[in-house]
Design a protein around this nucleic acid. Structure first.
Lengths: 114, 114
DNA sequence: TTGACTGATCAACGTTCGTTGATGTATTGT
DNA sequence: ACAATACATCAACGAACGTTGATCAGTCAA
């Protein structure tokens, strides 16, 4: 119960992190490996504070991690989190048996499910 | 490579559709098959207009379809779309070879990638 | 120490989102 | 024809989001 709701909030937050084009482009760039913010900045052509904002959203959703080294901050994907999200989606595909069938309860006054 | 910016906007829209707890609960309910709005309403305990709003978001993102029959409107998942999203996520997992490696370009003045 | 550089954070602003309550529109049973 | 049901749509409102420009903090080289 509690756990389920917590997971829903977590999940919503993770999907939200991917609901923006700029962040999707960041993810694309990180597929080839860890990148520092300045390189992402060059690649995306976004203002520094804007990029920082989006990286924060991705980080707080758990999709990326950051690693400080000297004056650079390196960001990388967390593949296990992407995998969890993919698994969620695959688990939500309805059974073929349920396709097109009305799954309504029989509690209607009229006849919902003829 | 994978699709152009058009697809990015579409993708962002689809992830946005899953970025809300109410909509995630709707998806959960639809896994067991097609449902009419009134049953979703009972199951979720949301106001009718609120539910209608969320169903519209899911529909316009392509995650569900609706089917009118008599005075009922039946919603169901579109499994192929969920599958596409899952595939996207699995394709974005970095190669293991790239884990932890700095993929920065060599264009920095200082030494970013020692 | 000074100055250049990386990057986070903040305030301000306009835009989008989600909720509520009301109204509109089919469809159906009486 | 009338009333009830199922559902979409609208207007209004506050909350959350994304952008910009400014400021601040830490690191490094000269």
């Amino acid at each position: 119960m509690y756990g389920a709701d917590l997971d829903l909030a977590q999940l919503a937050r993770r999907f939200h992190a991917l609901s923006d084009e700029t962040r999707l482009r960041i993810v694309d760039l990180l597929v080839s490996g860890e990148k520092c913010v300045c390189d992402l900045q060059d690649a995306i052509g976004a203002a520094q504070s804007r990029l920082s904002f989006h990286l924060r959203v991705l980080r707080e959703a758990g999709l990326v991690r950051d690693r400080r080294q000297g004056r650079w901050n390196f960001y990388s994907l967390r593949p296990e989190v992407l995998e969890q999200m993919a698994a969620y989606l695959r688990e939500r595909r309805p059974d073929e048996a349920a396709w097109g069938a009305c799954g309504c309860t029989e509690t209607h006054e009229g006849r919902c499910c003829d």
